[in-house]
């Protein structure tokens, strides 16, 4: 299956793109997607304990299953206001 990965702020800078596609095996979780990103962009690993994630623009958990066509977003600590 294929998912879209969205990255923001510093994560986007590290990867050099805000939107990427990833092909994943069946049964993949959000954590599978994150591991795939860290494997391609090792600098992302510094964010492992501080990021939030979202599936299809709704906050989610690393353990959540992902489906074909999903949009998975990884969010560094926020700084709005």
């Amino acid at each position: 299956m294929r998912v879209t990965v969205r990255l923001f702020a510093r994560l986007r800078d590290i990867a050099g793109a805000g939107e990427l596609q990833r092909d994943l095996p069946a049964g993949a979780s959000v954590h599978t997607v994150w591991r795939s990103m860290v494997s391609d962009f090792p600098e992302l690993s510094a964010y492992e304990s501080s990021i939030s994630c979202a599936v299809n623009a709704d906050y989610s958990r690393f353990t959540a299953a992902v489906a074909d066509g999903d949009e998975i977003a990884f969010l560094p600590p926020v700084s709005g206001g």
């Binding site: 702020a9 510093r10 939030s52 979202a54 977003a73 926020v78 700084s79």
Partner: peptide
Amino acid sequence: PIWKREYFEGGDVWIEGATA
């Protein structure tokens, strides 16, 4: 999920606050 990038004299930095 909003982030600010600060451009200051001598550089720039993403500000990171709370894990949402």
